[in-house]
Amino acid sequence: MIIPCVTTYWLCRVFKSFSCSQHDRSVKWTHGYFSAVWIFSLWLICPHVGLASSQWSDGTPITRFDKRSDCVMVSAANWKNLPKRHWAGPTIWTNRLQDWTAQNGTLTCQARNNLPCRTAHLLTYDLSDRSESFRIEVVIRLSPGSVQAGFAGFLIGAGEGRLDHRGAAMIHHSSGKGGGVLAVVETVGEGGLSFRDMAHSLTQSTFPLLDQQQTIVQNMIRLGYHRMVLNLEGIPQSGGLYTLRLSVWSQHAGKLLGARELTSMSANRLRGNIALIAHADGKNVAHIFEDLKVGGDRLQFHPHRTFGPIAGTLYSLSNRTLKLGTQFMHLGEALEKKRRRL
């Protein structure tokens, strides 16, 4: 509303100049006229200045999921009240295990040796082949002191429904056939949101931008040290296509920071696993995630796919002596000490 208000102000100055004395009327008219024309031209040429769009390309209002009555979201993973440990819980499989840490109610990915695209796959939900909408939400930020380099967000369609969910849960590091689609917030340059391809070629660690995407709102955002809410929504269209909508919000102020839209995405490419993604272009980078939520009828719930805390068992029988062994996931230092005493 800044530009319309300023324009109105100067137009009022123009009309007021008519009531001034004959001596200075021409000066005030010229000053007010050119000022009004300059501001109005700036408004027309640069529509992104001042008044940001608050609608998607089809006119639908851009609204946070928790403010919409049609959005029913469920908690898919939460790390509150957990001890510090590398195991992210029974609903999450991380790649690699040592790159992720549950601590202080969050899941943190610490970059190690410039390794790209660390993933945390959701085991209990995936995207089915139903032509329905879906929504994913997570709170995200950088750890204080992290180098702002890379991106973080969501990976969807990992495995494209052709891999067993356990095989798809291993997807990380490099792009390749069936690798999925990245929907992320950038931490480099001017920042912003983007949709990237993790399936464009075999054994590559580059992730090019997908075609048919456009920025709807851009407020020069970068992923930083303050909490942001990242929302991803998939909306079915005719002809077996989907529109993907990615928006990011300030958690505390509730302000829309950015929105980006991808159209004409094949529905088949979205089948498969859902994962959190953390990609670092440096060593001193730590991405922090909180409160992963999902919703929508395309999501399919698989409660039997949880994993842990027991990773496996082993037994041996020799000379009528039975020996049993149990392998646990990393449970935290305090629990590890108790386990060793058993």
Rank of each mutant, 00 (worst) to 15 (best):
P4M: 08
V14A: 11
F18D: 04
S21M: 08
R25I: 05
V27F: 14
V27E: 14
K28T: 02
G32E: 02
P47A: 12
G50Y: 02
Q55E: 02
D58W: 12
T63R: 08
R68K: 13
A76G: 07
N78T: 05
N78W: 06
K84V: 05
R85D: 13
H86R: 12
H86M: 05
A102I: 13
Q103P: 00
Q110I: 09
L115M: 08
P116D: 08
C117V: 15
H121K: 11
L123P: 13
T124N: 06
L127T: 11
R130T: 10
E132I: 01
F134I: 04
R135N: 07
I136P: 00
I136H: 05
E137D: 09
V139E: 14
R141S: 07
L142S: 03
S146Q: 03
Q148S: 09
A149I: 11
L155G: 05
A158T: 06
A168H: 00
I171H: 02
S174E: 01
G176V: 05
G179C: 09
A183M: 05
V184D: 01
T187V: 00
E190I: 02
G192Q: 03
L193F: 01
F195Y: 09
A199W: 03
L202S: 11
T203V: 12
Q204P: 01
S205A: 10
L209Y: 11
Q214W: 09
V229M: 02
L230E: 00
L232E: 03
G234I: 06
P236V: 06
Q237K: 13
Q237E: 12
S238A: 13
L241M: 15
L241P: 09
T243S: 11
R245M: 05
L246P: 06
Q251C: 04
H252A: 10
L256C: 10
A259N: 03
E261Q: 15
M265F: 02
R271N: 09
G272L: 06
A278C: 11
K283N: 15
N284P: 01
E290W: 10
L292W: 07
K293F: 04
K293C: 13
R298M: 04
H304W: 12
F307Y: 11
I310W: 03
A311Y: 07
A311Q: 15
Y315M: 15
L317N: 15
L322Y: 13
K323P: 01
L324Q: 14
F328R: 12
K337R: 07
K338C: 02
R341D: 15
